[in-house]
Nucleic acid binder design. Structure first.
Lengths: 215, 215, 215, 215
DNA sequence: AATGAATGAGGGTTCATTCAT
DNA sequence: TATGAATGAACCCTCATTCAT
């Protein structure tokens, strides 16, 4: 395979090709920026900080991206990928609507906690340029729509009690996205624990057998 | 100093004293700023915008506050007041732990939706100066602690199933605070509807009679 | 007259109103910038230099203009005013086409040499934003058109020999605009001398009695 | 150093020597740069554009020149060569002063219109480093001086009326150099037409038989 | 009580230039 | 011979803050 750089298998491909190095560095940049954006917000994060964290000059960043906006946008894209991966996972392995929801919730939370830096950036939608925001919102809306689809499916197949799909999605996504405010990697709660617990709370909240309210 | 009170009763107190006028204007400033901070974020909001919305000059603001930071801090104080009011309300009228939680949830949501502008500012904790942030976090922690107290009370009095107080509070507060991202006054969902629905979802999730989880 | 500032005639209006001061300073800014643009070109001129020449900070300039582009644009407007003033003068006082041309040439040169700084900026058309450039070019084209009109008039009334209006205008305007490269105020040649001489050269070049060309 | 010549006759000299290739590429670089400088001005032209036009990388340019300044300087040298070539031509073939002037004018205009890119750079004298500018100005002054010499010669031999040599040169050189602002190759006016017309206008302006002024 | 004017610090971005490969 | 990568200096512009009036 001549493709994959000029090293054609030598050194067991341990040496990376230029393109691979470039991609690697660019990704490192994006992740570092995502972390910073999450911590201080987009507008309060200077590219100097990002550069310093990477050990390079501010100007060097512009070799990999064309603007600060592009960084924010790409971070969003990365985060949205997680959501879609979780959706795909749920669609593939879940049978009932409820099962799909639980699978989605758990998987999404696992991805989120594993890559909290990239995901927290989702709170910065308002800092996107109108054009970029439109793209992001479109994908996010699509995510919500498919999520709601699970709920409707669950109500139809009897696995869920009668609930409002829209508000339920907002409810849960709020709980999840808020993670970025308090979750600390290697902290008291690990990702799996949270994933299980949140999925459990959600399940009890929407399950059809649950009829506690108003008792 | 007689100068601190009202116009000694003249005009039947219809005319506001200097202090009252000052306080009124200052509050107007804070609310306008809160609205702007919520819409665009603290760092992306220029004081010119706030001033313009009030019909004065940027420089005039400095007669009522000493810095942009102070504005943000005061906004936080206002928002935290809502939370504490809801807590007090729950403590006063709830009997079981579960009842208190539901009362708290519903009341807090009602206050939030009624004054979303002031509350959305809570998402801007990171923009606070270290010193101010400490104060805000302390009050918020106190809120969380009392909230968790309700949960523990509920588990003790049998109204709640066995759950993790900390994560449950985070879970719910996340769902609630996320409101600031999608709730629109006079939009399709009104505050009361949301309050009821969210409280219901929460109740089902934590109620003792709920044992749906297939696990 | 309350109009004219708050000074209502007191002090014989020696004291300038705010608005007048503002306009004065803004004009000073424009002239200083025009001078700098002429000397070093638009892109090589930093606003720091302009500010320093005015004894203020770079940021202060932005109180009077909204961008460097605006400065350049306004400079063009000022320069174009001179051209139109000269045109109006010629149209008013000239009888034959030739007379108008000579009047235009002489007056324009006088204005130019008197305010060389502002006029030299005309060489920087390419540095204008597309939108601004369009406006400037439109006015300049209008100037050329009216100039050419004089020539056609002169050929019709017999005061000029048969010449190409377009090239003649370019020819003369080139000679004139080139002034900005070599003319120095208070130098060996004063404005009036140049104006007379250039007008004379032009006149001989286009006059009907002139039939020197050996061809 | 045998290394300086050709490949010792091999390949019938079809293959160019290193030095020749180098010179060829360097010249290509200069011409491309001159074109760009003319179009956008020295400071607004990025070396990336020049490099892209040549199909190489920005860094590659530095193999042929040592700085952007050097490029500008060499462009000036090329342009000045044209002027001197025209001078030599006029001195060789003209008899009277007037003849020389007309020959110079026509030839210079022909060279200019044929290679407008290189010549337009003459408008960028101010972008030269002081040291380089001095050299350029020296050559340009020499050109002017010889031009003026023709005029004096013409007045002495009776072919020209009494005129001011200095201003006349400025006048004409302005008209000529302004060409770079409006002349478009393959446009409505071709080089020869312009050359003839401008030379004609000049001739009428300075010819001894012309005595129209003031009539 | 409020404004006009000015400042200084900082941010994003561009670009000529360098250097190892 | 030419490239990828990086740098540092400079530039335009914004904004919170101050102060005389």
């Amino acid at each position: 395979m001549a493709k994959g750089g000029r090293h054609s298998g030598a050194w067991k491909n341990v040496v990376l090709s230029r393109d691979e190095q470039f991609a690697l560095k660019r990704t490192a940049l994006l992740r570092e920026a995502a972390k910073a954006f999450s911590a201080r917000g987009y507008h309060d994060t200077s590219l100097v900080e990002v550069a310093k964290a990477l050990g390079v000059t501010k100007a060097a960043l512009y070799y990999y991206v064309s603007s600060k906006q592009e960084i924010l946008f790409e971070c969003h894209m990365m985060a949205l990928d997680h959501g879609e991966a979780a959706l795909a996972h749920a669609e593939k392995h879940g049978k009932t609507g409820k099962e799909k929801i639980i699978l989605l919730a758990r998987r999404y939370l696992e991805l989120l906690t594993a890559d909290i830096g990239s995901c927290a950036v989702l709170a910065e939608v308002n800092s996107l340029d109108p054009e970029n925001r439109a793209k992001v919102v479109a994908r996010r809306d699509d995510f919500d729509r498919r999520f709601r689809g699970f709920i409707e499916e669950g109500m139809a197949d009897g696995s869920l009690r009668k609930i409002d799909p829209k508000m339920t999605v907002f409810f849960f996504m709020g709980a999840v996205n808020w993670l970025t405010r308090w979750f600390v990697p290697n902290g008291p709660y690990d990702g799996e624990t949270i994933a299980n617990y949140f999925a459990d709370l959600l399940e009890h909240g929407i399950d059809n057998r649950s009829d506690a309210a108003g008792a």
